[in-house]
Simulated assay, not measured.
Amino acid sequence: MNKFSNKRFLYSALLVLIAANGFIWHAILFGSGTENLGLYFLDVGQGDSELINFPGDVQVLIDGGPNTKVLEGLARALPAQDRYIDLVVVSHPQLDHFGGLIDVLESYKVGAVIENGRKGTTAAYADFEKTLQENGVRRIILTEGDKIKYEDATLSVLSPNRKNLASKELNDSVLVMMLEKSGLRALYTGDIGKDIEDELLKKYDLSAQVLKVGHHGSRFSSSPEFLKAVNPVISVIEVGKNTYGHPTPAALGRLADVGTQIFRTDRDRTILVDFDGDKLRVYLKKLW
């Protein structure tokens, strides 16, 4: 049995949804919220960008969406005087995940960039590498089994392995990461599809209260078996206007079948999941 199944009612009961309100967001973002763990899912259009804000204002940014829109989200998630991001993670070298990081590197001081070691082949990726070099940013390659630790928090890399990195399918090489802190687990899946989901199912306890839904809600991701294993209380789909039909009715239906609360950046805009060590609260910013 999923070890979080007995807590589903508790977490669901504690879920607080707050619609767009400038005063509330100012209090959450710039008040005492830094004592809590903040999981931001930034509205970057059709792309991915997630910010983990640890107590003490230590930040990990996972992906940066396709363009400069990520800067708008960061400007609202971080105090104006905070121009330092400790770690930036590139889940895989696709434009809708790394494109905005060029602007992040030019606007913020970045401690290091975490990558999976697979190189992109586009002109945009060449620009990204050039920006890294010009700003003297340290590059670190992580793959399956590696961990990032900060105080009582751990970010574990569940994938890719060597086979995944050599796959012709670029999405198979995604850095899949599980965040664990004070009983909270959050799973970041990038653009993985069912094949990688099946691999993960065989290797890991995937149970997590928070799920970043794979591949913008593609019909080729979020299999019933995978979602049953994760059993998320909160599921966030990073998606914008697109021609792919994301999120697909099939993926939305499978998410609904496991009883998770579904949030979408195309409708809810930037989403903050706040965790104080006991309660999960979700704050929505629908109006910029």
Score class of each variant (00 low, 15 high):
A251P: 03
L170C: 12
I140W: 02
Y204D: 05
D195S: 14
D152A: 15
G47Y: 00
T131D: 06
L95K: 14
D86K: 01
R281I: 07
G136D: 03
E144D: 12
I52V: 08
V176W: 03
Y11E: 09
L132D: 09
K203R: 10
R139C: 08
D82V: 04
A251E: 08
G253H: 06
A229N: 08
S182W: 02
V90I: 07
F30W: 11
L61P: 04
R219G: 14
H215F: 09
P160A: 07
N67C: 09
A229I: 07
A112L: 06
L101F: 04
A112W: 00
E199Y: 06
D43S: 09
N164P: 10
A75M: 06
L201N: 04
K241H: 14
F41M: 03
K202I: 06
R83F: 05
A123L: 14
K147E: 15
K228N: 11
D96A: 13
L78K: 00
A75W: 01
G111K: 01
V58R: 03
G38D: 09
Q261P: 06
E169L: 13
W25K: 13
G38Y: 03
K212T: 15
Y283K: 11
R264Y: 02
G73S: 00
V104P: 02
T143G: 15
I28G: 11
I148K: 04
G47L: 00
V233E: 03
A153H: 04
D57R: 12
R185F: 09
T260I: 06
L255C: 10
A20V: 02
V44W: 00
F98D: 07
